[in-house]
Amino acid sequence: MSTDMTSILTAEQDAQLREIIIEVLELEADELTDTSSFVDDHDADSLLAIEILARIEKDLGITIPQDDLVDMGNLDGVRAVVVRNLGGDKDA
């Protein structure tokens, strides 16, 4: 995880993201790593990917454009997209 992301995501937000992904993909906590692929490693399909996006929008109160889904293939990707849409780091 890159340092500029940690500086923007609070520990609470980061824990929230992990929890959402673990719940939606029905994983054990230690199965999810920063770079494990939702599709290849965790059997996600595009409906579950949209569910992750929808849950983040609802729980974190932000709006994520649908086009960003392509960048949300693992936890690090999700962090980058969330940071981008929190408005704190447009270039991330």
């Binding site: 409906l47 579950l48 949209i50 569910e51 929808a54 849950r55 929008e57």
Partner: peptide, 11 residues
Amino acid sequence: HQERPYLVNPS
């Protein structure tokens, strides 16, 4: 009931 009407669960 949601804050915005489209905040439904896609799954």
